[in-house]
Computed example of a mutant assay.
Amino acid sequence: MNDFFNFLFHYLEKEEILLDKPEFLFQVQSHPNYPSLLAISDTLSFFNIDNAAIRVEFAEIDDMPDRFITLLSEHLSIPHLYFIEKKDSSYFATKDKKTVEITKASLESRWNNVVLLAERSEEERIIKNKKQQWHWFLSSLCLVLFVTIVFLFAGSLRTYSFFIFPTIGLLFSIASLKDLFGAKSKLINSFCNITASTSCDS
């Protein structure tokens, strides 16, 4: 069931919106209109995430943000929700865990005029900015202390590598634990999403 909402979780991660996934799944499945777009929108509102499900003609797609969720037609099947991301002039569609490039013509032929948008609240942005300031201060302090300790010990390349490699391993461990427990950051997101088809989940 978790895979069914991967398009939504991927979208929220890109927008840097934090969400308790198990609680979201519980709430959305409890909605009387589950599994409709209304159920998703109402559940996001329950978590105080500003969102809107709107009708958008395809002619207005260039005015849309670079990331959004939309309902696309399927061949011989009911329409499904996709996370769409625009990079330069290319479009990428994500459903389940698959991300594929989609042409604008193909997007137009499958368009259903339904779009879901979400954004972080202003209060969350202020809190995040304060956390980032402290994060950079502590990170810089740790880096300065580490470099000082390494250079106080005059030694060979082997000695330096003994300090450097475990430290790099520790940093990757912290990054993966933060991703595992949902504490997203811009650095982790950029590392996890180096290309459109990669993520730390996969």
Results as ranks from 00 to 15, higher is better:
Asp3Thr: 10
Phe5Leu: 07
His10Pro: 00
His10Gly: 03
Glu13Asp: 11
Glu15Thr: 12
Glu16Phe: 05
Lys21Pro: 02
Pro22Gln: 02
Glu23Thr: 08
Gln29Asn: 12
His31Tyr: 06
Asn33Glu: 14
Tyr34Gln: 09
Leu37Thr: 07
Ser45Thr: 07
Ser45Val: 10
Phe47Gly: 07
Asn51Ile: 03
Glu57Met: 03
Glu57Arg: 11
Glu57Gly: 15
Glu57Ile: 02
Glu60Pro: 04
Ile61Asn: 03
Ile61Pro: 11
Asp62Asn: 12
Thr70Met: 07
Glu74Val: 10
Glu74Ser: 15
His75Tyr: 13
Pro79Arg: 08
His80Glu: 14
Leu81Ser: 06
Leu81Val: 13
Lys86Cys: 09
Asp88Ile: 14
Ser89Met: 13
Val100Phe: 04
Ile102Gly: 09
Thr103Ala: 13
Thr103Ser: 15
Lys104Met: 01
Leu107Cys: 01
Trp111Phe: 07
Asn112Ile: 01
Asn113Cys: 12
Asn113Phe: 04
Leu117Pro: 00
Ala118His: 01
Ala118Phe: 00
Glu119Phe: 08
Glu119Pro: 01
Glu119Asp: 14
Glu124Phe: 05
Ile126Ala: 00
Lys128Leu: 12
Asn129Glu: 10
Lys130Pro: 02
Lys131Asp: 10
Gln132Trp: 04
Trp134Glu: 10
Phe137Ser: 11
Phe137Thr: 14
Leu143Phe: 10
Val144Trp: 00
Val144Cys: 12
Leu145Ser: 11
Phe146His: 08
Val150His: 02
Leu152Asn: 12
Phe153Asn: 05
Gly155Glu: 01
Tyr160Ala: 12
Ile164Lys: 01
Ile164Ala: 04
Phe165Asn: 04
Leu171Glu: 05
Ile174Asp: 03
Ile174Val: 15
Ala175Ile: 09
Ser176Arg: 09
Lys178Trp: 04
Lys184Cys: 03
Ser185Arg: 04
Leu187Asp: 13
Leu187Asn: 12
Cys192Phe: 01
Asn193Tyr: 14
Asn193Lys: 15
Thr195Leu: 03
Thr198Glu: 06
Cys200Ala: 07
Asp201Thr: 09
Asp201Pro: 00
Ser202Glu: 05
